[in-house]
Amino acid sequence: MSDKNSLLQTIKNNFIEYLILTVSTLILVLGVYLFKFPNNFSFGGVTGLAVVLAEVSPISPSTVTLIINMSLLVLGFIFLGKDFGVKTIYVSILTSVALSAMEFIYPMSGPLTSEPLLDLLFAVFLPALGSAMLFQRGASSGGTDIIAMIMKKYTSINIGTGLFLSDIAIAVAACFVFGMEIGLFSFLGLSLKSLVVDKVIESMNLCKYFNVVCDDPKPICEYITNELHRGATVCRGEGAYSNDTKSVIITALKRKQAVQLRNFVKSIEPNAFMLISSTSEIVGNGFQS
């Protein structure tokens, strides 16, 4: 029975995992197809390159993306073997297929709005949101990330710098292919992209770090361990002014749990002193591995 329950739990976890990957990928695809491709914004790896290549060839950006991504997947299999992530393969194929499918579901002959800056914001934000959600699940959208994985394995080249320079080269090419206005929009999008991805990931990872100075740590620790299912560390301290012995409880919680703990401490020990800090990077059991 336990083996059956374990199998069902594994299936459930995998279903949720791939559902999140699918939703994240579709958010990315909507941003690229609805806002990036129609405006010829040329930033962000494979899709940015696809915009430029599609302008000088008879095929659409979606088809170019499909061809490049499939070629990179083959290279990934050849050079990375078992190190090549299953999630990245799934997302890369889904991205390519979904972009091609959108051409039949919702063909576009021009930009969605008459405001290029508004389109640019959505062309940056939606893919950034999708990418951040993918990074949270240990996946990526493939494309230039596959090149980065190959470079990391076989060379000592600074990958981040290499990919950033390639993105700049694509934006420069957009200046010659589409004109200076589109090129400048592409440079702006390139600048915003990394900033938005970092901020979205930071927001998703945001947790609260507590230092609770109190007289009786027992009920607070029991609440943290039994109700919030988190760990805590208790230290002994002494008040600098009163010289009274105090207990200091140190713990890290998700945002919702932080509100619960704050309210609980205020209800049972109103004079407790709480230092609450925001942090986006906690490494350890229950957080990042």
Rank of each mutant, 00 (worst) to 15 (best):
L126R: 14
A101M: 14
M149E: 05
T113E: 15
I89Q: 03
F77P: 00
S96F: 14
T88W: 00
L73Q: 01
A123D: 14
T88Y: 04
R137W: 09
D83V: 01
Q136N: 04
V91T: 07
V91R: 03
V124H: 10
L80W: 01
L80Q: 06
G142Q: 03
S100R: 14
E115F: 15
L117H: 09
F135R: 05
F122Q: 09
T113K: 15
F79P: 01
M133G: 07
F135I: 11
G85M: 14
I147Q: 08
M151C: 09
S109E: 13
G138A: 04
A128H: 14
G142S: 11
L120G: 10
A98P: 04
Y106R: 11
S141W: 02
I150F: 02
S114F: 14
S131R: 04
Y90Q: 03
T144D: 08
I93L: 10
A101S: 11
R137V: 03
L129F: 12
P116W: 13
L112V: 15
S131L: 15
D145E: 07
A132M: 13
I147D: 00
V91C: 09
K82P: 00
A123R: 14
T144K: 05
P116M: 13
F104I: 11
K82I: 02
F125G: 08
E103P: 02
G142N: 04
L99A: 00
L75F: 00
L120V: 11
S141L: 09
L129K: 05
F104E: 13
V86R: 12
A148F: 10
K87I: 08
S140L: 15
F104T: 05
V97N: 04
V74L: 06
F84R: 03
T155Q: 02
L99Q: 09
L73K: 02
G130Q: 08
R137Y: 15
F84E: 01
L121Q: 11
P127S: 09
P127L: 09
L120W: 11
P107M: 07
A98G: 05
G76P: 01
S114N: 15
D145M: 01
P116L: 13
L126Y: 09
R137G: 02
A123P: 11
Y90D: 00
V86L: 12
L120Y: 12
L120C: 11
Y106A: 10
T95P: 08
K153E: 06
V124E: 02
V124A: 07
L94M: 10
L118D: 07
F79A: 00
L80S: 03
A123S: 15
T95A: 07
F122P: 12
P111Y: 13
L80K: 02
D119F: 11
A132C: 12
T95G: 06
M149C: 03
V86D: 01
T88F: 10
F125Y: 15
Y90V: 06
L80I: 04
L129G: 06
L94Q: 08
V86Q: 10
V91D: 07
S156C: 06
F135M: 13
T155F: 12
L118A: 13
K87M: 01
T88H: 02
P116K: 12
P107F: 13
K153R: 11
T88V: 07
I147F: 11
F104D: 04
I146L: 08
A98F: 07
F84I: 02
Y90C: 07
L94C: 08
S109H: 13
